[in-house]
Amino acid sequence: MARSKRELQEINAGSMADIAFLLLVFFLVTTTMDSSWGLSRKLPPPLIEDQEPPPPIKDRNVFVVLANANDQLLVEGELMDIANLREAAIEFISNPQRKEELPEFKEVDVDIFGKMPVSKQVISLQNDNGTSYNLYIQVQNELEAAYNELRNQLSLEKFGTKYSILEEMSKSDDASVSEPAKAKVKAVRQVYPQRISEAEPKETGS
Protein backbone atom coordinates (compact mmCIF):
# COMPACT_ATOMS: atom_id res chain seq x y z
CA MET A 1 0.00 0.00 0.00
CA ALA A 2 2.63 2.36 1.08
CA ARG A 3 4.73 1.39 -1.88
CA SER A 4 2.35 2.70 -4.49
CA LYS A 5 2.47 6.08 -2.92
CA ARG A 6 6.21 6.33 -3.34
CA GLU A 7 7.20 8.34 -6.35
CA LEU A 8 9.18 6.58 -9.03
CA GLN A 9 12.70 7.89 -8.81
CA GLU A 10 14.34 9.03 -12.03
CA ILE A 11 17.44 7.15 -13.06
CA ASN A 12 20.46 9.39 -13.12
CA ALA A 13 21.66 9.55 -16.69
CA GLY A 14 24.71 11.61 -15.89
CA SER A 15 27.11 8.71 -16.21
CA MET A 16 25.79 7.86 -19.64
CA ALA A 17 28.07 10.52 -21.07
CA ASP A 18 31.04 8.96 -19.34
CA ILE A 19 30.32 5.58 -20.82
CA ALA A 20 29.86 7.04 -24.25
CA PHE A 21 33.09 9.00 -23.89
CA LEU A 22 34.92 5.84 -22.98
CA LEU A 23 33.71 4.12 -26.13
CA LEU A 24 34.40 7.23 -28.16
CA VAL A 25 37.98 7.40 -26.99
CA PHE A 26 38.45 3.73 -27.82
CA PHE A 27 37.28 4.23 -31.38
CA LEU A 28 39.27 7.43 -31.73
CA VAL A 29 42.42 5.58 -30.81
CA THR A 30 41.89 2.49 -32.94
CA THR A 31 40.62 4.32 -35.97
CA THR A 32 42.72 4.73 -39.06
CA MET A 33 41.31 6.89 -41.74
CA ASP A 34 43.54 5.44 -44.38
CA SER A 35 41.43 3.48 -46.75
CA SER A 36 42.63 0.84 -49.10
CA TRP A 37 42.97 2.86 -52.26
CA GLY A 38 45.63 2.01 -54.73
CA LEU A 39 46.79 1.53 -58.27
CA SER A 40 45.80 -1.95 -59.35
CA ARG A 41 48.24 -3.86 -61.48
CA LYS A 42 48.60 -7.36 -62.73
CA LEU A 43 52.02 -8.99 -62.72
CA PRO A 44 53.08 -11.21 -65.58
CA PRO A 45 53.21 -14.93 -64.73
CA PRO A 46 56.65 -16.30 -63.86
CA LEU A 47 58.94 -17.12 -66.75
CA ILE A 48 58.87 -20.71 -67.86
CA GLU A 49 62.15 -22.22 -68.94
CA ASP A 50 62.69 -22.76 -72.65
CA GLN A 51 59.70 -20.65 -73.43
CA GLU A 52 59.48 -19.51 -77.01
CA PRO A 53 60.69 -15.95 -77.35
CA PRO A 54 57.79 -13.65 -78.17
CA PRO A 55 57.55 -12.35 -81.72
CA PRO A 56 59.53 -9.15 -82.19
CA ILE A 57 57.63 -5.90 -81.89
CA LYS A 58 58.33 -3.10 -84.31
CA ASP A 59 60.10 -0.12 -82.84
CA ARG A 60 57.33 2.25 -83.85
CA ASN A 61 54.86 0.29 -81.74
CA VAL A 62 56.84 0.58 -78.52
CA PHE A 63 56.81 3.57 -76.22
CA VAL A 64 59.94 3.28 -74.13
CA VAL A 65 59.98 4.92 -70.73
CA LEU A 66 63.21 4.66 -68.77
CA ALA A 67 63.67 5.92 -65.23
CA ASN A 68 67.14 6.20 -63.76
CA ALA A 69 68.50 6.36 -60.26
CA ASN A 70 68.42 10.17 -60.27
CA ASP A 71 64.69 10.09 -60.92
CA GLN A 72 65.05 11.35 -64.46
CA LEU A 73 62.86 10.10 -67.25
CA LEU A 74 63.98 9.15 -70.71
CA VAL A 75 60.97 8.81 -72.97
CA GLU A 76 61.57 7.55 -76.51
CA GLY A 77 65.18 8.63 -76.23
CA GLU A 78 64.47 12.11 -74.95
CA LEU A 79 64.68 13.56 -71.49
CA MET A 80 61.20 14.40 -70.33
CA ASP A 81 59.53 15.96 -67.35
CA ILE A 82 56.89 13.91 -65.57
CA ALA A 83 54.33 16.63 -66.24
CA ASN A 84 54.55 16.03 -69.99
CA LEU A 85 54.40 12.26 -69.84
CA ARG A 86 50.64 11.96 -69.95
CA GLU A 87 50.32 14.05 -73.09
CA ALA A 88 53.11 12.16 -74.82
CA ALA A 89 51.53 8.84 -73.93
CA ILE A 90 48.13 9.93 -75.20
CA GLU A 91 49.60 11.06 -78.49
CA PHE A 92 51.44 7.77 -78.79
CA ILE A 93 48.46 5.56 -78.03
CA SER A 94 45.92 7.35 -80.18
CA ASN A 95 48.25 8.52 -82.97
CA PRO A 96 45.62 10.96 -84.29
CA GLN A 97 47.55 11.96 -87.40
CA ARG A 98 48.53 8.39 -88.25
CA LYS A 99 52.17 9.34 -88.22
CA GLU A 100 54.81 7.00 -89.57
CA GLU A 101 56.85 6.82 -86.40
CA LEU A 102 53.87 6.23 -84.11
CA PRO A 103 52.10 2.87 -83.77
CA GLU A 104 50.30 1.00 -86.53
CA PHE A 105 46.61 0.21 -86.48
CA LYS A 106 44.81 -3.01 -87.14
CA GLU A 107 41.13 -3.48 -87.94
CA VAL A 108 39.64 -5.47 -85.09
CA ASP A 109 36.12 -6.70 -84.50
CA VAL A 110 35.03 -5.02 -81.28
CA ASP A 111 31.91 -6.20 -79.44
CA ILE A 112 29.56 -3.25 -79.70
CA PHE A 113 31.28 -0.92 -82.15
CA GLY A 114 31.94 -3.42 -84.91
CA LYS A 115 35.13 -2.94 -86.89
CA MET A 116 37.47 -0.43 -85.32
CA PRO A 117 41.09 0.46 -85.90
CA VAL A 118 42.99 -0.66 -82.81
CA SER A 119 46.48 0.56 -82.14
CA LYS A 120 49.23 -1.99 -81.77
CA GLN A 121 50.81 0.09 -79.03
CA VAL A 122 52.88 -1.32 -76.21
CA ILE A 123 54.32 0.79 -73.42
CA SER A 124 57.60 -0.46 -72.07
CA LEU A 125 58.57 0.75 -68.65
CA GLN A 126 61.98 0.15 -67.24
CA ASN A 127 63.36 1.40 -63.98
CA ASP A 128 66.64 1.25 -62.18
CA ASN A 129 67.09 -0.31 -58.77
CA GLY A 130 67.83 3.16 -57.48
CA THR A 131 64.68 4.80 -58.84
CA SER A 132 62.52 6.12 -56.06
CA TYR A 133 59.18 4.48 -55.45
CA ASN A 134 57.49 7.84 -55.62
CA LEU A 135 58.64 8.46 -59.19
CA TYR A 136 57.69 4.94 -60.18
CA ILE A 137 54.16 5.47 -58.91
CA GLN A 138 53.94 8.85 -60.62
CA VAL A 139 54.92 7.26 -63.93
CA GLN A 140 52.42 4.42 -63.46
CA ASN A 141 49.80 6.98 -62.56
CA GLU A 142 50.43 9.16 -65.60
CA LEU A 143 50.31 6.18 -67.95
CA GLU A 144 47.10 4.97 -66.36
CA ALA A 145 45.72 8.48 -66.66
CA ALA A 146 46.57 8.52 -70.37
CA TYR A 147 44.60 5.34 -70.94
CA ASN A 148 41.72 6.54 -68.82
CA GLU A 149 41.54 9.82 -70.67
CA LEU A 150 41.34 8.12 -74.05
CA ARG A 151 38.80 5.63 -72.78
CA ASN A 152 36.73 8.46 -71.36
CA GLN A 153 36.82 10.23 -74.70
CA LEU A 154 35.71 7.17 -76.62
CA SER A 155 33.04 6.32 -74.11
CA LEU A 156 31.63 9.84 -74.13
CA GLU A 157 31.55 9.84 -77.89
CA LYS A 158 29.86 6.47 -78.26
CA PHE A 159 27.71 6.09 -75.18
CA GLY A 160 27.47 9.60 -73.82
CA THR A 161 28.82 8.48 -70.45
CA LYS A 162 32.28 8.63 -69.03
CA TYR A 163 34.27 5.42 -68.86
CA SER A 164 34.86 5.88 -65.15
CA ILE A 165 31.11 6.06 -64.60
CA LEU A 166 30.60 2.92 -66.67
CA GLU A 167 33.16 1.18 -64.51
CA GLU A 168 31.29 2.23 -61.40
CA MET A 169 28.04 0.99 -62.88
CA SER A 170 29.53 -2.37 -63.77
CA LYS A 171 30.20 -2.96 -60.08
CA SER A 172 26.58 -2.33 -59.17
CA ASP A 173 24.60 -5.06 -57.46
CA ASP A 174 21.68 -4.56 -59.80
CA ALA A 175 22.23 -6.91 -62.74
CA SER A 176 20.12 -4.80 -65.09
CA VAL A 177 22.57 -1.93 -64.53
CA SER A 178 25.82 -3.84 -64.32
CA GLU A 179 25.41 -6.18 -67.29
CA PRO A 180 25.14 -3.60 -70.08
CA ALA A 181 27.81 -1.49 -68.38
CA LYS A 182 30.15 -4.46 -68.26
CA ALA A 183 29.71 -5.04 -71.99
CA LYS A 184 30.44 -1.40 -72.70
CA VAL A 185 33.52 -1.40 -70.47
CA LYS A 186 34.77 -4.46 -72.27
CA ALA A 187 34.26 -2.89 -75.67
CA VAL A 188 36.09 0.29 -74.68
CA ARG A 189 38.92 -1.77 -73.27
CA GLN A 190 39.20 -3.65 -76.53
CA VAL A 191 39.72 -0.43 -78.42
CA TYR A 192 42.28 0.90 -75.93
CA PRO A 193 43.84 -2.14 -74.31
CA GLN A 194 46.25 -1.34 -71.54
CA ARG A 195 49.58 -2.82 -72.45
CA ILE A 196 52.26 -1.77 -70.02
CA SER A 197 55.22 -4.06 -70.03
CA GLU A 198 57.84 -3.85 -67.36
CA ALA A 199 61.30 -5.01 -68.24
CA GLU A 200 63.41 -6.95 -65.82
CA PRO A 201 65.36 -4.42 -63.79
CA LYS A 202 68.90 -3.55 -64.76
CA GLU A 203 71.68 -1.73 -63.01
CA THR A 204 72.26 1.34 -65.12
CA GLY A 205 74.65 3.27 -62.95
CA SER A 206 73.67 5.90 -60.52
Binding site: S36, G38, L39, R41, P44, P45, I137
Partner: peptide, 9 residues
Amino acid sequence: QALKISYST
Protein backbone atom coordinates in the same frame (compact mmCIF):
# COMPACT_ATOMS: atom_id res chain seq x y z
CA GLN B 1 51.39 -16.77 -58.75
CA ALA B 2 50.19 -13.89 -56.61
CA LEU B 3 49.72 -11.77 -59.69
CA LYS B 4 47.06 -9.33 -58.57
CA ILE B 5 48.74 -6.48 -56.79
CA SER B 6 47.86 -2.99 -55.79
CA TYR B 7 50.26 -0.17 -55.10
CA SER B 8 48.73 1.52 -52.12
CA THR B 9 48.59 5.29 -52.53
